[in-house]
């Protein structure tokens, strides 16, 4: 994260540096206040305050007595309860499986296809536009359409499977306990892979042609060029895409909620859907416990992102050093 933020701030720093020495004037506080107060209003009220309030709530139990909200301090009880909550464990395991499998298939597919499309001149814009389309469609629409596609009796998948004689594979995809999570993973992959593809394609097009030419002059084969030049140079992009894909899966809500609502029997429950259920769908009215889930899970994801960035960065340096 730190490297990206540094690069994000750089243009501002550069702009300020160019002015130093040319003119030194008093800071126009009035104008700064005028420009920034609307932003700070939103930021403090709807971002900072809710963040603190979620942490605060996570140490409390909130209940209602005769329409009055009663908040009781319970210390770490909500967090302790996480350890015995089996549904939370299921949702956590499901989300972790998704967080591991999802980014891997997405990055592998997107990279291979980007390489194919990049080296292939015709229809290149067509593929880019077409594959990106699912990104634009609401998760609700995606979820509903795929509910039909995976319908047991007449869904597209089962009709196709029966059509080619694989009746045994035509299972009730969304009704069993072992398949719904994989359907969710697949559908989310379907919806977001175009995005990773476009990012990787952008990364590919920024690799200097001279390097590849030089390698070719030295007699490198296509495979060597890809593994020793293109992939190492592409690794910053691949790291970004992996992390974006990972965090996207960690907070995904729409597709799961519409496709399965976490069911059946929590078979495809994720942390995001479980927070929503504990907070609203189950009508427990206690926002304390779901807050504890959210805070705990945010910590886990943060650690995950930091570890992911650390190991991916290390891996990519080693590869460059070895090449």
């Amino acid at each position: 994260m730190s490297t990206n933020q540094a690069s994000a701030v750089r243009p501002l720093a550069r702009a300020s540096a160019s002015r130093i020495g040319t003119r030194r004037q008093r800071t126009p506080w009035g104008a700064i206040a005028l420009f920034l107060i609307p932003l700070l209003f939103f930021y403090v009220l709807f971002v900072v305050y809710p963040l603190i309030a979620t942490i605060w709530n996570s140490f409390h139990t909130i209940s209602y007595n005769m329409g009055q909200q009663v908040t009781t301090f319970v210390g770490l009880d909500n967090y302790a309860a996480l350890f015995t909550d089996r549904i939370f464990h299921t949702s956590m395991i499901n989300t972790i499986i998704w967080g591991v499998v999802g980014p891997i298939i997405e990055v592998v597919f997107a990279t291979s296809l980007a390489l194919l499309v990049y080296f292939k001149v015709p229809f290149y814009r067509f593929f880019r536009t077409a594959w990106f389309t699912p990104m634009l469609v609401s998760g609700v629409i995606v979820g509903l359409v795929f509910r039909w596609i995976f319908n047991n009796e007449w869904g597209l998948v089962n009709t196709a499977l029966r059509g080619i004689g694989l009746d045994a594979l035509a299972v009730n995809w969304l009704g069993r306990r072992d398949t719904p999570l994989w359907v969710v993973i697949f559908v989310h992959f379907w919806a977001t892979f175009g995005f990773s593809f476009v990012l990787i394609l952008a990364g590919l097009s920024s690799i200097s042609n001279d390097l590849i030419e030089a390698a070719r002059v030295d007699g490198a084969k296509l495979r060597q060029i890809i593994t020793s030049i293109i992939l190492p140079l592409l690794s910053p992009t691949l790291i970004t895409v992996t992390i974006l894909s990972f965090t996207g899966k960690m907070k995904a809500f729409n597709v799961v909620w519409v496709l399965t609502e976490g069911g059946p029997l929590h078979a495809s429950e994720t942390v995001a859907t479980y927070v929503q259920k504990r907070a609203f769908a189950w009508r427990t009215l206690d926002l304390g416990y779901p807050s504890a889930i959210a805070v705990f899970w945010f910590g886990v994801v943060l650690v995950g992102v930091i570890l992911l960035r650390y190991f991916l960065n290390r891996g990519s340096y080693q590869r460059e050093g070895g090449a």
Partner: peptide, 21 residues
């Protein structure tokens, strides 16, 4: 930079207090 950090926050960590507000 602190503003940029807010981009990382998942909606789940904010929306319950937002509902209360």
């Amino acid at each position: 930079s602190s503003l940029l950090l807010a981009m990382m926050l998942p909606p789940q960590i904010q929306y319950l207090p937002q509902f209360q507000m």
